[in-house]
Amino acid sequence: MARFGMVIDTTKCVACMDCVVACKTENEVPEGLCRDWIVQEVKGAFPELQMEIRSERCNHCDNPPCVDCCPTGASHVEPLGLTVQVTGDVCIGCKACLASCPYDARYIHPEGYADKCTFCMHRVVEGLEPACVAVCPTRCMYFGDLDDPNSQVSRLIRSRKGHTLLPEAGTKPRIHFLT
């Protein structure tokens, strides 16, 4: 069974936010909210600076606290790709998942349910990449099966330096940032 994840090459990303706009036009993300976003992390003092640019979103963790804490089962792991999804009709909007997510990846949709990145599964089942990946002008994002050792994402993780976000949280996030 596939275990979907993403690899994002921070050395190519230019923080243009095309991934954010594409997510909003592809999915129904209400005004003022977003499922993905850009972080520019600056270290050092002028002019000796380093900056890492990351397109961030739900990590579809292997060990998702949002699923563990959900009282209704709305937040769940989908068999297809083992992604973390929310069934809006079942969600009661209690926000336990928002509090439990160390990545602040969720928001409450104006219609009252928790919402977040789906890895664009409606596209993936059609054989397309998630909208953010497909649109990126720098081609810095890769989507695929982390359990397939021959997938591009697996090969990139093996061959390049990188990191995940907050590994110490124990969530086993599935988005890898190349540096």
């Binding site: 129904e28 999804q85 929310v86 069934t87 809006g88 009709d89 949709h109 219609e111 349910y113 919402d115 789906t118 599964m121 409606h122 993936v124 089942v125 059609e126």
Partner: peptide, 10 residues
């Protein structure tokens, strides 16, 4: 023609 993976609103 496409279908949505998760139907969460109209």
């Amino acid at each position: 023609s496409r279908r949505r993976f998760l139907k969460i609103s109209s």
